[in-house]
Amino acid sequence: MTNQVELLVKGSRRALARTLTLIENQHPQAQATLAQLYPHTGKAWILGVTGAPGTGKSSLVNALTKALREQEKTVAIIAVDPTSPFSGGAILGDRIRMQDLSGDKGVFIRSMATRGSLGGVATATRDMVRVLDAAGFDYVIVETVGAGQSEVDIVRTAYTTLVIEAPGLGDDVQAIKAGILEIADILVVNKADRNGADQTVRSLRAMLELGHPASWEQFVSHHGRLMETPTMPSTPSDVTLWIPPVLKTSAIQNEGITELVIQIEKHRQHLTESGTVAQLEARYIEIELYERLQQALMRQVTSQLSESLIQTIINQIRTREIDPQTAVNQLLVQLN
């Protein structure tokens, strides 16, 4: 083990922070570090927290973490914010809402920008969650703004996903469009101290009934890409269903948080007792394997292709000498 990994496993927060940087930066040592840490992972319960901007995700993570700390659970938080596509920089401001947690050695907060590299932020987040898992935290919470596919991908690391709404945030149908509702294990209407919370709860319940909340089916369609794999069971009959509860909270008034913790625990029990957690993990690993394989193969292939050859082929396709798929087939034959 490298010194840093050893220190991390023993509880050094500096070593932990530095390892997170190493992973995030895809430093040459990142791969070896993750390999050393991997045997120490698999113990944390991973929570995803997503929802539209400003719904109170960070405030809720703050309140939730306080409640978990009262049960003497340790909590690590990764708060993801978007990188500016113009400058490549980012302002990471989620800590502002998590001040109550400062000074607590049972909590570790890390802000992360999406950066938008190839392979994407989902891979980086997954690896950073593993680092925090190896460091021994009971819970790892990942907060991301639920705006698009990449955020949905991030949440796919989680065992329990909370989708946060707020009253009067406009068209609730938006949430469905973005595919956000489908990933929810628990729906939270935060800012319940404001008018309209009950209305939001009602419309979310109605939507859940419309979209039928059979979690198994959701999962299969959600990971549609993998549906063709033969190992994927096609009937949900042997799986007990989890109906996502719709909860009301006020993060700033600390209301509804106890119930939220109870529901998270229930969902966890549901997954562990039905054995679904093992299936879920297997599925996540399967997705990850294909992703990594795809990336590795792509790297291998592109490293063998010269820029001039690619230019020649592009020209041939453009001038209709050859069609794109035939060109690819020929390339593959050449490479083998």
Binding site: T83, S84, G89, I91, G93, I96
Partner: peptide, 15 residues
Amino acid sequence: ARALRDAGMEVIYTG
């Protein structure tokens, strides 16, 4: 904070 973000940096702002 904004100027540094616009210069491509990741700025953690704590309030």
